Amino acid sequence: MGTIIELGHGVRAAVTERAGGVSAPPYDSLNLGLGSGDEREAVLANRETAARRLGFGLDRVVWMDQVHSADVLVAAGPGAVGSCDGVVTTRSDLVLASMAADCLPVLAADAEAGVLGAAHSGRRGTAAGVAANLVRTMVAQGADTDRITVLLGPAICGKCYEVPERVRDETARRTPEAACVTRRGTPGVDMLAAVTAQLRRAGVTAVTADGRCTAESPELFSHRRGAPTGRFASFVWRD
């Protein structure tokens, strides 16, 4: 299921893993992604299982319709918040979710101000700066960059994320840290390095990372390693 991480002052985060659900191959088994091609009933059962094991009600969760954008919305209630790749809330009862299978989850909190944020930073979202937009939206809701703590979830690493040279250069246009070389000596994108740099430029210094590469970690879903596949979720919430 994954470990619950304390972000301080009653804020918790967690990343789910593949095991412990009811989905059949190739989505086996704790697939939480409704858009993955899996059976809807299995995904909903998996979501219920994940929420119960992590200690919150499924009816508290805010889900994004992730579209690889830099758009960030403010959630006023649980359920589907709309098409976006970042979500912020000031409600203490809501749980924010970010889905991934290689993209980088971003979980953020200013516990003192009571502002939470979550983002899905894929290659296009990284190029467009969704993480920085998440920080700006949190500040607009009362957060302070000096107090924001960020956990970056698992994502495909730069050594594994091979892309055409044109795509690498496009991704690195605004964030040079995105450009890298894969272990095969080919052009790559390092989303972890890029998003870390974006957050620091936005004024956030308290940034930690899960560090696992999805393509190299069999306990996690990875689209690059084997599509079609399921999705894991990264959650942030307040007790």
Rank of each mutant, 00 (worst) to 15 (best):
I4S: 03
E6F: 07
T16G: 15
A19W: 12
A19T: 14
P25F: 09
P26D: 15
P26G: 13
Y27W: 15
L30H: 13
L32F: 12
L34N: 06
G37Y: 06
E39V: 05
A42P: 00
R47F: 01
T49C: 01
D59M: 06
M64C: 10
D65S: 08
D71I: 09
V81A: 12
G82P: 12
G86Y: 11
V88M: 04
T90E: 10
D93K: 06
D102Q: 01
P105A: 10
L107A: 07
E112D: 14
G114D: 09
G117R: 11
A118N: 12
R123S: 08
G129R: 03
N133F: 05
R136I: 00
D144T: 08
D146M: 01
I148V: 13
V150K: 01
I156K: 03
G158C: 05
K159E: 11
V163L: 04
E165R: 13
R166I: 06
T171Q: 00
P176R: 15
T182P: 05
T182I: 00
G185L: 00
P187F: 12
D190Q: 06
A193C: 07
T196I: 02
V204Y: 13
V207G: 08
V207C: 03
T208R: 08
G211L: 07
S222C: 05
H223W: 11
R225T: 04
G226V: 04
R231L: 15
W237N: 10
